[in-house]
């Protein structure tokens, strides 16, 4: 079985991270922002898995499971906040929620 070279894996992780970051910065709908965040986290997790495979260590996969757990918790809290936001402001526009403007 031929293994995927580490360069490719890291390149994919970097691309996914860039796509996620672009989504966070560009998207105004808070749901899409949350989804972009998930992409960024998963790209980071992917980088761990690739590194673990390169040095034949289980640590990378352990951290991956941690990250998935954290992401699940984060989504739970995030969706609750989005729900509250929609309930109060009748919008999902992240820019509209700028009440803490200095």
């Amino acid at each position: 079985m031929t293994s995927v070279p580490m360069d490719h894996g890291l390149l994919l992780a970097g691309l996914l991270f860039a796509v996620g970051l672009a989504g966070v910065l560009v998207r105004r709908n808070i749901l899409y922002v949350l989804m972009s965040l998930e992409i960024m986290m998963n790209s980071a997790a992917l980088a761990f898995v690739v590194a673990g495979a390169r040095w034949s260590q289980p640590d990378g996969q352990i951290v991956f499971i941690f990250i998935v757990t954290v992401a699940a918790a984060e989504v739970a809290v995030g969706l609750a906040l989005v729900y509250q936001m929609f309930k109060r402001m009748k919008t999902l526009d992240a820019d509209a929620a700028s009440l803490m403007r200095g």
């Binding site: 910065l25 403007r101 200095g102």
Partner: peptide, 18 residues
Amino acid sequence: LLGLTVTGRVRWYAAGIA
């Protein structure tokens, strides 16, 4: 001047961090 950066827009903050 610093107060100007506190826009309350979360995307703006994220851009700053990035």
